[in-house]
Simulated assay, not measured.
Amino acid sequence: MPFRRSDLADLSYFLAIARHRNFRKAATELGVSASALSHSLRGLEERLKVRLLNRTNRSVTLTAAGEELQGAIREPFAAIHEAENLLNLHRDAPTGRVRINVPDEAAMRLLVPVLPEFVSRYPDVEVDISVDNTMVDVIEAGFDAGIRFGGTVPEDMIAQRLSSDFRWVVAGAPGYFERHGEPKHPEDLMHHRCIRLRLGNGRMYHWDFEQGDDVLALDVPGPVIVDNASASRALGLSGMGLMYAAEPAIAPLVAQGRLRLTLEDWASPGPGYFIYYSSRRQVPHGLRLLVDLIRELRPLG
């Protein structure tokens, strides 16, 4: 069967579908519609005269032929993408696309402050940001990199620091303290209303405290559990309960008097944000430029 130019695009689409096992997620990665992906795959299967995927309303799985095709073409396509990235080094203006997976707080505190300048300097580089507080396999999901707190970066990744370390603090609205009083010791929190946190891996977060040699990790009580820093902050501002956050995230609200810190002598130090990516892939030139700009502008110090 003669190889057609359109087969390259269809095979690239197939790899994205095979990687995500989901048409919608693959379409988001590629910047096309899910219907366009479906049409492309049908055409590829008809030309190859073999079924590559099993599709139901609930799942997408690879057939045996699909598994073999994915294994055969994955590395060659990765090599093509790396070659495209290398060409950026020889262009007057970098181009391409950078896909990053970040939690909501990192998006607001690290990326939003630097993106206007980045777009001004490198208008031909497209930055695709997926805001997701769950821990995902960034490579398997088709991202170039992820941003997370230093202690949560997978060990098999290359990590680069994007911010200084900072303190984790307890804060509440002034009205909350008027109604419920102020804790004098971390263990007093067991008698307060706290806004509890669920980590990206599904585990409940224990609030950490440190004073000299005394170290505590408390599973605090509270009527509401969130997995989103913005929601925790909004609930804290409402006066519903005490919140636990990285100090830079709430510093402006503390300065405005809308939140007040408590138990400051027990504030726990924690690692800052790191960007991480696979050591097995060529790092896109646009990603290197973004990292350099974050380090230059230092939005979190």
Rank of each mutant, 00 (worst) to 15 (best):
M1C: 09
D7G: 04
S12L: 09
S12A: 10
F14S: 03
A16N: 01
A16L: 01
R19I: 01
E29V: 04
E29D: 13
S35D: 06
S35A: 03
S38E: 02
L41Q: 09
L44H: 04
R47F: 01
R47D: 03
R51M: 04
L52I: 14
L53T: 13
N54T: 15
R55H: 07
T56A: 05
T56Y: 08
N57C: 06
R58K: 12
R58I: 09
S59W: 11
V60E: 04
T61G: 03
A64H: 14
G66R: 05
E68N: 10
G71Q: 14
I73D: 02
I73Y: 07
A79Y: 04
A83C: 07
A83K: 10
A83P: 05
L86F: 12
L89W: 03
A93F: 01
G96M: 02
R99P: 01
N101Y: 02
E105S: 14
A107G: 04
A107Q: 06
L110K: 04
L115C: 09
P116H: 02
V119F: 15
S120N: 11
Y122E: 01
P123H: 05
P123D: 08
V125K: 06
V127M: 02
D128K: 12
V131T: 12
V131C: 10
N133R: 07
N133F: 13
D137I: 07
D137C: 08
E140I: 08
A141N: 11
A141Q: 13
G146E: 01
I147H: 05
R148H: 07
F149C: 06
T152W: 06
E155V: 10
I158Y: 10
R161A: 13
L162E: 10
S163T: 15
R167P: 05
V169Y: 03
A171H: 10
A171K: 10
A171V: 13
A173G: 08
E178L: 15
G181E: 05
P183K: 08
P183Q: 05
P186I: 03
D188W: 12
M190Q: 15
H191C: 06
C194A: 14
R198P: 06
R198N: 09
N201P: 05
N201E: 08
G202K: 08
R203C: 07
Y205V: 07
W207V: 14
W207E: 08
D208Q: 14
E210F: 06
V215K: 14
L216P: 02
L216M: 15
L216G: 02
L216A: 03
L218N: 00
G222Q: 00
V224S: 00
A229Q: 03
S230N: 03
L235T: 00
G236K: 00
L237A: 00
L237E: 00
S238A: 02
G239H: 01
G241M: 01
G241F: 04
G241Y: 03
E247S: 13
A249V: 14
A251R: 15
L253C: 09
Q256A: 15
G257L: 13
G257W: 14
R258T: 14
L261S: 10
L261G: 10
D265A: 15
W266M: 12
A267T: 11
P269S: 14
G272K: 05
F274I: 06
I275K: 08
Y276C: 03
S278C: 13
P284K: 00
R288T: 06
L289G: 07
D292L: 09
D292M: 13
L297Q: 15
L297A: 08
R298E: 13
P299Q: 06
P299Y: 05
L300E: 15
L300H: 09
G301F: 10
